[in-house]
């Protein structure tokens, strides 16, 4: 077990958002957190990663290092792509040379050519920026990677490439993942299990195991499964306009 959320409750300005939410993340497992907009996915992730202290409940982190990929790349505009990738290594006290080596290796791993390493974020395309953000997360050699709708602004093709990249890296480096998304196709592609968050119930209404292994499912099967599940009452909130707190 890597992470355990136990009876988490939180809200903003007296308005309850999450009530008694529990979730466990096992070694080497990717769990997708799906739910309609505004149901508290980002909030739950922020609680898990420690950016927000929950009002109730307990977070147990049974690991050393985590990394996070946000919805926006969140790169420092004044650092080159390579220095951005190395940014998470700063607190580690590695030598500058070592940092640069790690950063170069990760840049290569996410498919950034050497000619892009010294560019500033403003000179990179949206997809490249998100690659840099993934490389920055990989560079710290995390035990868990948190991802908050990391690919929602990218086109379908690039989305798939980066989803497969994250799944492959998780397998190779053995990290677990908590992957927030509102896209059921994405969830089915990358996850071992899917946790469904509902705004009506202010919590996780169901955790489903996806058959097969992430990254090894064929597109046909993903398509059929999403097709079937989208008619399921559990996922209804994802697709209809009702029950959304806008």
């Amino acid at each position: 077990m890597k992470l355990s959320l136990e009876g988490i409750g939180h809200g903003f300005l007296g308005r309850p958002l999450l009530e008694d939410v529990s979730l466990i993340l096992n070694d080497g497992e990717i769990v997708s957190l799906v739910g309609p907009s505004g149901c508290g996915k980002t909030t739950l992730l922020a609680i898990a990663v420690g950016l927000i202290d929950p009002l109730r409940g307990r977070v147990r982190r049974l690991y050393n290092r985590h990394a996070m990929v946000f919805q926006e790349p969140r790169l420092l505009p004044w650092l080159s792509a390579r220095d951005n990738i190395a940014y998470g290594l700063v607190p580690r006290g590695l030598s500058r040379l070592r940092c640069r080596d790690v950063a170069a290796a990760k840049a290569r791993a996410v498919g950034l050519g050497q000619m892009d390493w010294n560019k500033y974020p403003a000179e990179l395309s949206g997809g490249m920026r998100q690659r840099v953000a993934i490389a920055r997360a990989l560079a710290v050699q995390p035990d868990i990677m948190y991802l908050d709708e990391p690919f929602s602004s990218l086109d379908v093709g690039l989305k798939r490439i980066l989803q497969d990249l994250v799944v492959r890296m998780a397998r190779e480096e053995g990290f677990s993942g908590l992957f927030v998304t509102h896209d059921l196709v994405e969830a089915v592609r990358v996850a071992d299990r899917i946790a469904v968050l509902s705004s009506r119930h202010r919590g996780i209404v169901e955790v489903r195991t996806v058959p097969g292994r992430p990254g090894e499912r064929d597109e046909r099967m993903v398509f059929d499964l999403v097709e079937r599940w989208s008619r399921d009452a559990v996922f209804a909130e994802l697709f209809d306009g009702e029950g959304r707190c806008l």
């Binding site: 985590h66 946000f70 998470g88 700063v90």
Partner: peptide, 21 residues
């Protein structure tokens, strides 16, 4: 502030955050 939150996730201390962000 979103950059600050990012740096906090990666365990960057307050002084370092001030200097780099």
């Amino acid at each position: 502030r979103s950059l600050d939150a990012m740096a906090r996730v990666y365990g960057v201390g307050p002084l370092r955050r001030f200097a780099t962000i």
